[in-house]
Amino acid sequence: MKPVVRSLLETDLYKFTMWQAFLHMHPNAIGEYEFKCRNTPAYPLAELKDEVERELDHLCEMMFTEDEVDYLRSLRFIKSDFADFLTLFRFQRKFIHVDTDGPHLRIRATGPIVHVMGFEIFVLYIVNELHFRRFDQQAAIAEARVRLQRKIDELRAFEQEPTRLNPFEFFDFGVRRRFSGEWHEEVVATLGRELPQFFRGTSNVYLAKKLRMVPIGTMAHEYMQAFQSFDVRLRDFQKKALEDWVQEYRGDLGTALTDVVGMDAFLRDFDLYFAKLFDGLRHDSGDPVEWGEKAIVHYAKLRIDARTKRLVFSDALTVPKALSLYRHFADRVMTGFGIGTQLTNDTGNEALNIVMKLTRCNGQAVAKLSDSPGKGFSTDETFIAYLRQVFDQHI
C-alpha cells in the first residue's frame, strides 16, 4: 500500500513560518511533543502501532525536492537561508518514539525544536488515515461527496443574501484530521472550482502548490508556548513572542493567535503597538461571538477602526457556523474562516479528535490554558496552576 505521506511539503503553512522564526531566533531550543486522542475511537489506536512505525520510517527517508524548495523560495516571507536549510533537512528517526498503553497509542518526539516540530502534522494525518482505512472506503467517500455538495449548495444559496461591508471568505484548514490525502485533494480542488468567489486557499502547502492556490497560515500555539521557557519573565512571554514575530516578518503574516492563556490575558498584552503592527487576530477556543466582541471593543479602546482589521475563526467550524459568525460581524470587521475536519473528514463516521502538542521546552513545562475547557494541554499540573495565577485565568 502507498505510504501516507506524499511530500514533505504536505503540511500546514504555519509549520514553515514558525520553523523559520525558531531557526533564526531560537535555534538551540529543545522541545518535547506528545500525541493525544481526546475521544474514544471506533477501533483502538494501539492496533496501529506497527503501521505508524513503518510510516515514520518512510517519513524519515524523505527530503525536500529542488522544485519544492524553489516553491517555498517564491513565497516572499521565506528567507533564503531557511530555504537552504530545507535542502539539507531530513527528519531523524531517533527523535520520535511510538508505544502503546492498553488501547491507547503513545507517540513522543523529543529533540531540537527545529528538528522535531515538523513531526506533528505528519503524525496526525498518518494516524488519522491509517485509522480510517479500516472503514468502508467507497461508502465513506460517497457520503462525503453528498455532504460536500450540500455545503456548496448552502454557500450558493447564501450568495443571494444582501451584500455586507466585507466579503465572506473561507479556507481549508483540514490536513491534520483528513480522511485521506486523495479525498483532501478532491475537496480543495472542488471548492476552488465551484466556489472561487468564497474559497480563498488552503493551509496545505503541497496542495497550494499543486492546485495553484494561496497557502494560508501564520502561527500556532506551540510558537507562543515555547516562549514560556525562554529567557524572559513568564508574565512577558506573549509580548516577547509577538515582538520576535514582528522582527522576523516585518509586516507579513500579521494574524496573532490569542488563546494560549486566554483572550483576556492576551488583550492585556496586545497594546497599541501590537494592535497597529498586526493585521488581525485568530480565534481557536471559547465562545466565538464573545471573543469577537471583545476584540472589537479592544480596538475601539485603542482608537483603531476595527473595519481595518481581520478576525479569523478556526475553532471546530462548520459552514453554517461560519456563515452565522459572518452575518454577526461582517459589517464591523473583516473576517476569515478556516474550516478543517468538517471539510476533509465529514464522512458520516466519527472523526478522531487527535492532537500532538508541545509539552516541554528547554526542560521546562509549557502549557496552553485555552478559553475552552478540555482544549488546554500540559503534563505538569503545578505549572498550569502557576500559569493560571500569573495570568489571572480561572477557567
Rank of each mutant, 00 (worst) to 15 (best):
G374T: 00
N349E: 13
G336R: 12
Q364V: 14
L323A: 07
D371P: 00
G340W: 11
T379L: 02
K375T: 00
L343E: 03
K368V: 01
R360I: 00
A365P: 15
T335M: 10
F329G: 10
T379R: 15
E381M: 02
R360N: 12
I384S: 09
Q342D: 14
G340K: 03
G348C: 02
F377Y: 03
V319I: 15
V333A: 00
G376D: 03
K357L: 10
S378D: 02
D371R: 00
V319W: 04
Q364F: 02
I384F: 01
D380S: 06
G374V: 01
L325S: 11
A330G: 05
I384H: 01
R332T: 03
K375G: 05
Q364C: 14
S370G: 08
G376T: 06
D331R: 13
G338V: 04
F337T: 10
K357V: 12
A322N: 11
G340L: 09
E350M: 06
M334F: 10
L352Q: 03
Y326L: 09
T344W: 04
G363T: 13
N345V: 01
L358C: 09
L323D: 02
N362T: 08
G376H: 10
L323P: 00
T347S: 15
N353A: 14
T341Y: 11
F337L: 09
S372V: 11
G376A: 08
L325I: 02
N345H: 12
T344Y: 06
A351G: 15
D346C: 06
V333F: 05
R327N: 14
R332P: 10
P320C: 12
L343Q: 06
S324A: 13
F377A: 13
T344S: 13
L358E: 13
I339G: 11
Y326G: 08
D331E: 11
I384C: 10
H328N: 05
R327T: 13
A351H: 14
A330P: 05
D371Y: 03
F383R: 09
V319S: 04
V355S: 15
R360C: 06
P373R: 05
D346P: 04
C361H: 10
L352H: 00
D371A: 01
R327W: 07
D346L: 02
A322M: 05
T347Q: 12
L343H: 04
T344P: 06
S324H: 13
A367L: 02
T382A: 14
N362E: 14
Q364A: 15
V366C: 14
Y326C: 07
T379S: 07
L358G: 14
L352S: 05
E381T: 07
N345S: 12
F329W: 01
G336V: 09
I384G: 00
C361S: 15
L325V: 09
G374C: 03
D331S: 13
E350L: 13
F377D: 11
D371M: 00
P373G: 12
T335R: 13
K321N: 04
M356L: 11
S370P: 01
T379D: 04
L323T: 04
K375F: 04
E350T: 10
G374D: 01
M334D: 02
S370H: 10
T359K: 14
V333Y: 05
P373C: 06
